[in-house]
Amino acid sequence: MRDVLTTTAELDALATIGAFVRVGLEHAGFDERGNWQVQLAVDEAATNIIQHAYPAASPGAIEVIWWFDDTTFGVELRDTGKPFDPAAVPRPRIDAPLEERDGGGLGLYLIDQLMDTVTFAREAPGVNIVRMVRRRPAQAPAVRQFALHGRLDARHSAAALAAVRTALDDGARAVLLDLSDVSFISSSGLRDLIVLLRRVRAVGGELRLCALQPLVAEVFALTGFVQLFPIHPTAADGLRAFGGPTRAS
């Protein structure tokens, strides 16, 4: 995913830029703290451009681009103002006493602390680029676990699976069905499970089953359904398997 915002390099654009980047960070799965940290780094870089790249009387444009792939989230800020040499900015002495501190260099220091990599470049013709990248948080899917009860037959299975369909509609993508209390499954029940499986896969999700009673397990074996569903001996095994291979065991 990727998005671009172009705005005038003025101080009242800072809140707008922060809100713009926040949307990308939310899509990329950052929690509130990580989101806030990256926003602060972007805010510092934008402040630097607004205050130093252009004359205050005639601010130019600032372009903000965010993107992310499977592992990293990046933000780029582009301006066409004065070149910027980060090496010329003294780094603050973080452990110095008050008398020896003047608050200079804190913006760059914070960017370095909050992002994994930061590069400053000047590209022809006259474009300054600061590119900041941070690892995305590990994407552990939130698993929704459902315990089914009694008989999964023509009369009961659709109702039993209704809650799962609702969860899918609400955005659940990792679903574990606990069948430990299911004593019987009919061909209707099997059909409803297949429909559910297709539905989960259609939205890019994962459906796993666990804790089948011996008779139910036998039906799965006889019908070849063991080839279609990943089945785990216990709920704990099932929960651990999410995010891994989805082929049936």
Binding site: L40, D43, E44, T47, L98, E99, R101, D102, G103, G104, L106, G107, L110
Partner: peptide
């Protein structure tokens, strides 16, 4: 809710 380096500088200068 939010502080960035220009705010921090004001705090340092004010305390001094």
């Amino acid at each position: 809710e939010y502080v960035s380096s220009p705010g921090l500088r004001v705090l340092i200068e004010a305390r001094k």
